[in-house]
Design a protein around this nucleic acid. Sequence first.
DNA 1: GCCGTTTTCGGCCCGACTGTTTTCAGTCG
Length: 584
Amino acid sequence: MEAKKAVRDQTISNHDIAEKFRLLADLLEIKGEASYKIAAYRKAADSIDHTPEPLSTLRQQGRLETIPGVGKAIAQKIEDLLDTGTFELLEEVTSEYPPTLRELLQVPDLGPKRVKLLWDELKVGSLDALELAIEDGRIYKVKGLGPKAIERIIEGLKSLKGRDIRIPIGKARELGKRIVQQLLEKTDKVEKIELAGSIRRFRETAGDIDIVAASEHPEDIIDTFCSLPMVHDVNMKGENRCRVMIEGGIQVDLICLPAQHWGTLLLHFTGSRDHNLHLRDLALERGAHMSEYGFKKNEQLITFSTEEEVYKFLGMQYVPPEMREDRGEIELSLIHQLPKVIRQKDIRGDLHMHSTWSDGKCSIRDMALAARSLGYEYICITDHSQSLGIARGLTPERIVEQRKEIESLNKELAPFKILQGIEMEVLSDGSMDLPEEVLRGFDLVIASVHSGLRQGREKVTSRALAAIRHPLVDILAHPTGRIIGSREGGDFDLETIFREAARTGTILEVDGDPNRLDLRDVNAQEAVDSGCLISISSDAHSIEGLYNMEYGVGTAARGWLRPQDVINTRPLDEMLKLLKRNRS
DNA sequence: GCCGTTTTCGGCCCGACTGTTTTCAGTCG
């Protein structure tokens, strides 16, 4: 037993434990167990997932019950899990129902009650079994499932199979903006309109597109919206909300209320769900019931026209959308200790972009003018270096030519400043693509590991470290090299990279290209906690690309970064002093 | 099953839409 225990302690992760409780909650819900018990298991599971220390450690210190949502009963179950890999109640329900039964809950319009019905009547216990029951028509014999319901289930099953459902934030946001624009062209009754949900919180991906609008005539707005040409299908339609499908099977939700509700409305549909639930808890403590309409207290509805007023009513500081994940922001906001996270307006310059000198689409002059009109004080042109032949990387000769162009533009555009930088390849053997005397000529050097990301952990990490330790490398670009949805990043040892970057004064990038967002939110937070400075950049290859900055800022804000953690929030000379090359 | 500046008991977020069980259950966000 002792030996087994030791093995278990090492092999079962917090996440695996959380999953066991989620499985238990799903099966109990199907069984029809009391809903608050189920909610308790799910809450505990989420808490466990967000607990950084291994539960085995907490257990040894007798601190399991310090985890929010974990009391005596769940703590005992965790101990059993650590010792034996399971616990009694879990064994009991999994002997009653197959664990695959919970797959059915993923099907839209199939909830616990219908799943139980399907199991009791037809012994349908998995997605495959459900498909069979549909094919041979048995499903039509189930009492309580009408033809409409079955049709929805069939559709739901189809959409589940073809699913790569979450959309990258860039695409979701662009689509969302297009829809909003189309709607505004068809009606003048919209007073306010905004993209909400994960898009507004700048998550990396969005499951659907949420749009919130204010109008005195919600029905008209809903009608107009449902008849837009890009709408393929109307799934649901009420007097102030609707859900439609557009091209590519992407779901769009629109909700519209009079402007007096705007504060709670926008808050409600921005989420996250956990953040909102927590706020409602706080409202209840004040005897008020919170909804998208406002706060109901003694049968009276109090409304708020801004989110700021809602937070103020709850005795809180305003929480920026990116931070609304219930990861401690509410507690800090209640005691007015919320860090002031970075906003777009804090950005004074953009330090990573490309021009027609390599693979950019616009001239340096056009990029500079566009950046200046965005309110920036400086930019750094960082075209690719020679080894990236596919991008017409710059040779030392062309670098000198480019410098002349930049110098002449600087005379013309002063006080706006164009820095000459380079995005230099770190070659697959860990050497730099340009010699030191060339690197010395730049205002700033960004190093990138583009190729050979498949090399093992040790190899890729040592290449990144070689760049970080180089005295003339100021910034490490998109440190993991991931492309969202298509390429995992390299297997870098980020902990070591952060430590070395902090030691050497090498700045790490949050690349705002919505397909990269690299460093990602939590990594950027770890980097800053390790003592690193960050550069947020657009990595623009065109004028439009300069707008990538907002994704970078959103990502940084999700990692709770403050303006002082980011070098390009500083005036030019202060920013330059932070570069390794200019430190004595 | 958890939790407590109203509580160790009695609460636990709130509202909308759909289909079908003609007064509401099931599902969703």
